[in-house]
Amino acid sequence: MQLEYFLLLAAALFCIGIYGLITSRNAVRVLMSIELMLNAVNLNLVGFSNYLDPENIRGQVFTVFVITVAAAEAAVGLAIVLAIYRNRNTIDMEQFNLLKW
């Protein structure tokens, strides 16, 4: 088993996340894409931690922090999605044009 396999896998997941981020029209799906990107980062960190830093496993510590923050971010994001759904009755990203881009 080699480090590079895991890194390539993480890079693929990251790029899929970016694709979803840009093309999705549903706000909830955009949030899911962001979770994919964060998971790619976690995979990177745990991979590095196992192959480069096995004594201190700092990467795993970092991953636990990322998981914590990702959960908080998801909660806040979904609260905002709920608030906007209540006012606009839609979660289509293309409809959010009150403010000019």
Binding site: V46, S49, A71, A74
Partner: peptide
């Protein structure tokens, strides 16, 4: 990758909390 605690946390937090929230 020998990260058993993180694997457990991943299932508990992501599958158990974030995914259910979504």
């Amino acid at each position: 990758l020998n990260a058993d605690f993180v694997a457990a946390a991943q299932i508990l937090v992501y599958v158990g909390a974030v995914n259910v929230l979504i």
